[in-house]
Nucleic acid binder design. Sequence first.
DNA 1: GGAATAGTGTCTGTTAGACAGTATTCG
DNA 2: CGAATACTGTCTAACAGACACTATTCC
Lengths: 258, 258
Amino acid sequence: MSLTNAAPGSPRAPEGYDPTAFEPFAVAVDLAVFTVRDSLLHVLLVERGEDPYRGAWALPGGFVRPTESAGQAALRELAEETGLSEETAGAFHLEQLRTYSAPDRDPRMRVVSVAYAALVPDLPEPRGGGDAARARWTPYSGPAPPGPVAFDHGRILADARDRIGARLEYTCLATSFCRPAFTLGELRQVYETVWGVRLDSPNFRRKVLATPGFVEPLEGPPRRTGGRGKPAALYRAGAATTPHPPLLRPDRPEGRTA
Amino acid sequence: MSLTNAAPGSPRAPEGYDPTAFEPFAVAVDLAVFTVRDSLLHVLLVERGEDPYRGAWALPGGFVRPTESAGQAALRELAEETGLSEETAGAFHLEQLRTYSAPDRDPRMRVVSVAYAALVPDLPEPRGGGDAARARWTPYSGPAPPGPVAFDHGRILADARDRIGARLEYTCLATSFCRPAFTLGELRQVYETVWGVRLDSPNFRRKVLATPGFVEPLEGPPRRTGGRGKPAALYRAGAATTPHPPLLRPDRPEGRTA
DNA sequence: GGAATAGTGTCTGTTAGACAGTATTCG
DNA sequence: CGAATACTGTCTAACAGACACTATTCC
């Protein structure tokens, strides 16, 4: 809740807690921006130009301004890092992950960070103004992080990846990784890349098409593909948000069913 | 991220952003503490004793202290509100939900709140010191919130309920609502209460027992029940965290499968 | 006995995965 | 032609839901 502790005598604030009397908290957002490129999961990292962790890679992000919410700050940062307008960036999937608040996560002062995950299609090289020039798409496929990263960003990154993988099972957001028009083969590669598995193409097609509104066929010249082979029909993302039944990952050697 | 904006000339902080120069943020935690009592979902609410929203019901919570994380603050508040020790309260399921940060969510100052959900068994009446005396278990079963609540707590509550319902499908945390020893009938009632459906008892039993480590049989005097009928065997929570396959909610008239 | 809960067993329509087979394109 | 991808169709083992039946207890 908020400020009930301002009451003198409250057990939660023995002597008239005044939040402004404490060392102030800074509130920041950190972005894990993912894309699928060349059948590899990539994440957008920026090289730090200042201490601490000078020269290390870090998640893009910044402070929440006094008049904006964390979500608005995340969208603003996403637009800056990708070099797109906020309106264009607003079409991307951007979701709050969780908040990191260990007292010592930033050695200089108390910074509480709200982490967001963004899913974008394969974009041209990140381009924005200023220090976004140091931004790079970094492969992030194995279970290990893509190298040493600043602060607790390795942990945030790992959490974000787990979350995205899990969300693919129960949501339709895999299409967020695809361009406006895509083939079912490209969509399947998204799942295969994020999950690190091979999926049976006919069965995948059946499941996706079984959920109405997951994808919608496009009229245009029915062709295009990622190499040779028969040209594939094009689709665009539909309005559905939840495939039913879910597209569960194969294997997962855990509890068995009766 | 953190403090990259301290760099002068950065596009994200044009003139040497100093976070301490801004109006400070306060960081709080809000708790949605759920329990199942008499086949109804209940949530713990406290009556506010100060303005704003004096006399309205609110989620229990408080400010994050300078030396603790948000998670530690949530555990501290949970212990205070339930009147238990932090060690005892630490056995309850407590998970971070999401962070609420609209600039105007608190009329007095900028408060960013990290919301947590706690799942507890049916406890005796909430008892703690001080203003926890105003805490009450409030039924929260229908789709509507349990009445007018302070701040954006109605929204937090609705989000929390949705999350708990969804988590029951893909996790084993329903046992968190049960006492240390419980019958499968009691466990089934947890699902029925949270989801608002009737489940087939034999099939439910089959699914639960099919996931090794979901529940473990207890030796003790094999009996007890919630009224009359044949006494049921007792179980305790196992080590498994994920039922496989998931215990999906029935119905859900949405996408159909092939 | 009747009602209520626990627990076992069975039956059946559906489904998920496997895979055969055809179509279309590139080199 | 061979390789690669798209797409259709089918077969089968397994499963989910429905439900019949028995057991045990309280009233």
